[in-house]
Design a protein around this nucleic acid. Structure first.
Lengths: 345, 345
DNA sequence: CTGAAAGCGCTAACAA
DNA sequence: TTGTTAGCGCTTTCAG
């Protein structure tokens, strides 16, 4: 192990006291040091290849320049863009991102967050959509600034960045109505997941806004956001006797399950039934039929969350008892071939 | 900010000296302390909700319990499983994973690694496949244990976990030969990317092993691992006059580009031309036609890399001048409908 | 403007 | 077995 260069070495090399070297190397305190001396220190540091020791600095200043991000499942393709967006924004300011998955298990969420707290992260980004989540008491005790992503808390004690599901569902329903559909069902996601609940309500709202009869009877809940569960829920819908001509699914995977269920009965999409998804995942444009869906700006959400966190961090203030209005980012409708005009009967 | 509990508080509460408390709290040193005293300390720590400060500890012990992982692009669906595999393995031992993307830019790789080095990561996982990469001089100076994932270095100075492309390509070619194909082309990935080069050579080897004429004329290189570039390369192939009945693409995206190119000419897959991919990405089983491809155990690769790193970390030894044989994990062939028997001419 | 000195929270010799 | 002491590398008063 070659010798690692410390501040003391730089000071000696520059012929100044260690504290002077420290001041010269720090942007905020440089002003208080003779410009020539400062130069000498900078040069010495560069020559020696000095790298400040973040641990030592952090120990002193009580900042780790680290933020932790909690996601439900790393394999879920929704999260990489969120992560990337946040990463880019934080990276610029010099923060590193620690990442932890809770595998959709509510009790793991606390564990992961506690790990982050132990590591003294400066802030936290929580992209976990479970509604029954409660922040570890320690989180509040330590007052670590935290921003929620893609989920609204039950309360509004944390700032949150969410997709505007209300608008998204309105776009979808409007699109179907324009195609002539009036009997539209919703295959919903789990009601204990933020997006599941949100989109369900947004769907019912959208129906009303279009002047259509809105009823819980038009909603069929899938046990999870997966193809199999979407298919099962759609089967129940098709067996229910509700005569619908279009299905709005809570996400793309559920939509695929619906399409499977429909095709398994010898019906076709979109001529017999139109189907829409949500998220615009990779490749859904290349499926048969290409999926009409809603594109959500996940990367922008990650970036926005990071910005908010950065602001809190800069203010060195966790917001206290401030109530936060969730920031909603606008989705956009992507029309493809899984929706079509209602068939003349 | 509520008072944060320090070791001193625990010591006072337990009525012992701070160093005794330290020993009692540490698994390795607990033996050297009276069992009753130790108990008292443990209880006190629990009651106060003591959390050791990792920075202070790290400053002293020179370990951060952090490892850095470099990936080319967070959005690339190949990496989440690698990441998840590594994360799970490391998490168990108490390591946290820092992640950094170099956006496929060679010069960013060094920057990201330097950031990690500055943060004094205990080890590094590099999932960057660029062949012209050279480790920052500092990496070697600091002797930070490093494991490569999904790429073989030009030299073997770092341990590496890679997919066994040789076997993967052999499986594909064998499959095609069994279907009666004898004129098989390869649409390769970039030759400066490890997997691009590797698979190209593996393809040519596989041809020979099957007793087929192997020639560089059967290889058409795509500028990148993307659909557009795959399509362009395939166009060149189709224009070249080489009469082939099957195309082995270097990855799934290139395969999709090939299928696009073929279908654009009014030909059909697989009746006119068989096409194979590589990676078995999500949804390629649902495309039209469903893609015959090779499934690579990326999650296992991430886990394996973490294991190797953990071993190096435990040995507190970067391996010095050891030469490492890359560990190859076996892929498996997934036969779907994009390949079929050769058409009787 | 610069130096001296204290101390962040912890671990690890060394003594007792 | 326990306490004393020094110090990891850095920032930050406080004097000069």
């Amino acid at each position: 192990m070659a010798k690692v260069i410390t501040l003391k070495d730089v000071a000696r090399e520059a012929g100044v006291h260690i504290s002077t070297a420290s001041r010269a190397l720090n942007d905020e305190t440089r002003s208080g040091v003779n410009v020539d001396t400062a130069d000498r220190v900078l040069v010495a540091a560069a020559r020696l290849g000095y790298q400040p020791h973040p641990l030592a600095r952090g120990l002193r200043t009580n900042r780790t320049w680290t933020v932790g991000m909690v996601v439900p499942d790393l394999m879920n393709p929704l999260f990489p863009p969120i992560f990337a967006g946040a990463q880019n924004a934080l990276d610029e300011i010099g923060y590193s991102l620690l990442i932890g998955a809770d595998d959709e298990a509510l009790e793991r969420t606390g564990t992961v967050m506690t790990t982050f707290l132990e590591r003294r992260v400066d802030g936290m980004l929580v992209a976990n959509a479970h509604l029954d989540f409660t922040a570890p008491e320690a989180l509040l005790r330590h007052e670590v600034p935290t921003v929620l992503i893609n989920r609204s808390a039950r309360d509004d004690s944390f700032p949150a960045i969410v997709g505007d599901d209300r608008t998204g569902l309105a776009l979808v329903v409007r699109h179907l109505v324009e195609l002539g559909h009036t009997r539209i069902a919703h295959v919903a996601g789990p009601h204990d997941i933020s997006t599941g609940l949100c989109r369900r309500q947004a769907f019912l709202n959208a129906l009303e806004d279009e002047g259509l009869a809105s009823s819980e009877r038009l909603v069929f809940e899938a046990g999870s956001f997966r193809i199999e569960n979407g298919r099962a829920a759609c089967d129940r819908l098709l067996d229910s006797g509700e005569e619908v001509t279009a299905i709005v699914a809570a996400n793309d995977l559920i939509a695929l399950g619906c399409i499977d269920a429909i095709q398994a009965r010898g019906l076709s999409v979109p001529s017999d039934l139109s189907v829409t998804g949500y998220n615009d995942m990779t490749f859904v444009d290349r499926l048969e039929p290409p999926l009409t869906t809603v594109s959500v700006p996940y990367e922008a959400m990650g970036a926005a969350a990071a910005e908010v966190l950065l602001r809190l961090l800069a203010a060195d203030d966790d917001g206290g008892d401030t109530a936060y209005e969730p920031v909603q980012l606008p989705p956009s409708l992507v029309v493809r071939a899984s929706t079509g005009p209602i068939r003349p009967s």
